[in-house]
Computed example of a mutant assay.
Amino acid sequence: MKGDLTKHVLGLSGGRDSAALAVYMRHHHPELDIEYFFTDTGKELPEVYEFLGKLEGFLGKPILRLNPDRDFDFWLKQYNSFLPSPQTRWCTRQLKLRPFEHWIRPMLEDGTTVYSYVAIRADEEYREGYSSKHDNLIIRLPFKDVGIDKAGVMDILDASGLGLPQYYRWRSRSGCTFCFFQQKIEWVRLKEEHPEAFEEAKAYEKNAVEHGSPFTWSQGESLDELERPDRVAQIKEDYEKRLARVRARQRANPLRPGDETLDIDELFGQAKVCLACHK
């Protein structure tokens, strides 16, 4: 009978917060049969796939891969070779949100009530990206409801034995290798950690500029300019100075002595990133 069905879904980005929410829901709501999904753009960091594999082992069930029906190259042509940017986030819209909507649309049209659990923490604003456009799609924010903040997320991942994805050594976000929300230091580290991905990003950028795109991946300079040795040295020096200033202003937390972990977003100010990619 239509209208009497419910489904519970939780989207994973390969990032810290959504992974912690999956662990939290498994522990605190084992009665729910949650389907975990990951929308794979094909341009993700290899560390993301590694972490998703570990998470599958912990959850004891597979994570559904939602693949876009059109890849990045297809949509790049549709947008006249213009790169995605903070002003025009077509990559998130077409490669992340669109596949999710296509997946759940038949359920909603069949009268199923879909509960979607989103990893917005208690210390965050409810940012854009998951507003429901259907009466049967209900958004739940468990971390907001119970007051779990960044420290709580870290506790959940530590206690589970999962820890952080490996890319947190050098970058503060999941998502595509060439995410335009990266800071300069993250582009430098991408070149060092995954030079082949950096070269691919350069090729996309060169093609875009040749077709008149007003955007480069990193604001104010091309990746060719950014990777020059003197510029790399300057970026690293600027980063260390900023890190020292922020740490000097930090108040010691008596409950977490010696915990001075800082995200890059905390150093440069948190961008209004899209939930589908970066949670």
Score class of each variant (00 low, 15 high):
residue 117 Y to L: 09
residue 197 A to V: 04
residue 190 L to A: 12
residue 29 H to Y: 08
residue 14 G to V: 06
residue 82 F to G: 01
residue 172 S to F: 06
residue 199 E to Y: 02
residue 42 G to A: 03
residue 206 K to D: 09
residue 72 F to G: 05
residue 204 Y to A: 00
residue 228 R to M: 13
residue 14 G to H: 11
residue 147 G to R: 12
residue 229 P to V: 11
residue 54 K to D: 13
residue 197 A to Y: 07
residue 160 S to L: 07
residue 153 V to A: 01
residue 117 Y to I: 05
residue 75 W to M: 00
residue 216 T to W: 06
residue 165 P to E: 03
residue 161 G to H: 12
residue 223 L to P: 02
residue 87 Q to M: 09
residue 117 Y to R: 14
residue 35 E to W: 10
residue 17 D to P: 07
residue 83 L to N: 07
residue 196 E to D: 13
residue 114 V to H: 05
residue 279 K to T: 13
residue 246 V to C: 04
residue 217 W to E: 06
residue 105 R to D: 11
residue 272 K to C: 02
residue 245 R to W: 06
residue 88 T to M: 10
residue 203 A to G: 00
residue 236 K to Q: 15
residue 121 R to G: 05
residue 267 L to F: 08
residue 59 L to D: 11
residue 153 V to L: 00
residue 156 I to C: 00
residue 127 R to A: 01
residue 28 H to N: 15
residue 83 L to T: 09
residue 216 T to P: 03
residue 1 M to P: 14
residue 191 K to C: 05
residue 97 L to Y: 10
residue 54 K to I: 01
residue 272 K to D: 09
residue 5 L to I: 04
residue 189 R to H: 10
residue 57 G to A: 06
residue 13 S to W: 02
residue 270 Q to V: 09
residue 262 L to G: 06
residue 125 E to Y: 02
residue 30 P to C: 03
residue 131 S to M: 13
residue 277 C to H: 13
residue 6 T to K: 14
residue 109 E to F: 04
residue 206 K to C: 00
residue 140 R to D: 03
residue 29 H to C: 04
residue 133 K to I: 02
residue 56 E to Q: 15
residue 178 F to C: 14
residue 188 V to I: 15
residue 278 H to R: 10
residue 185 I to H: 08
residue 238 D to T: 03
residue 5 L to P: 00
residue 71 D to F: 05
residue 38 F to P: 10
residue 28 H to C: 03
residue 81 S to C: 11
residue 7 K to R: 15
residue 137 L to T: 13
residue 258 G to Y: 00
residue 208 A to P: 11
residue 144 K to Q: 13
residue 113 T to A: 12
residue 193 E to Q: 04
residue 62 P to R: 11
residue 34 I to R: 13
residue 138 I to T: 09
residue 50 E to H: 13
residue 30 P to A: 13
residue 9 V to Q: 11
residue 159 A to Y: 02
residue 180 F to D: 12
residue 269 G to M: 06
residue 14 G to F: 02
residue 62 P to W: 01
residue 219 Q to V: 09
residue 61 K to Q: 15
residue 177 T to Y: 03
residue 16 R to I: 01
residue 92 T to N: 12
residue 226 L to Q: 00
residue 242 R to E: 07
residue 89 R to L: 04
residue 278 H to N: 15
residue 189 R to M: 03
residue 21 L to I: 02
residue 181 F to W: 15
residue 99 P to L: 14
residue 204 Y to Q: 00
residue 91 C to H: 05
residue 66 L to S: 07
residue 171 R to Q: 14
residue 207 N to W: 01
residue 33 D to V: 07
residue 7 K to S: 12
residue 261 T to L: 08
residue 234 Q to L: 13
residue 50 E to M: 01
residue 4 D to W: 06
residue 170 W to L: 01
residue 248 A to H: 07
residue 189 R to A: 04
residue 92 T to L: 05
residue 8 H to W: 08
residue 80 N to M: 04
residue 244 A to N: 13
residue 217 W to S: 04
residue 105 R to G: 01
residue 116 S to M: 09
residue 218 S to N: 15
residue 182 Q to A: 07
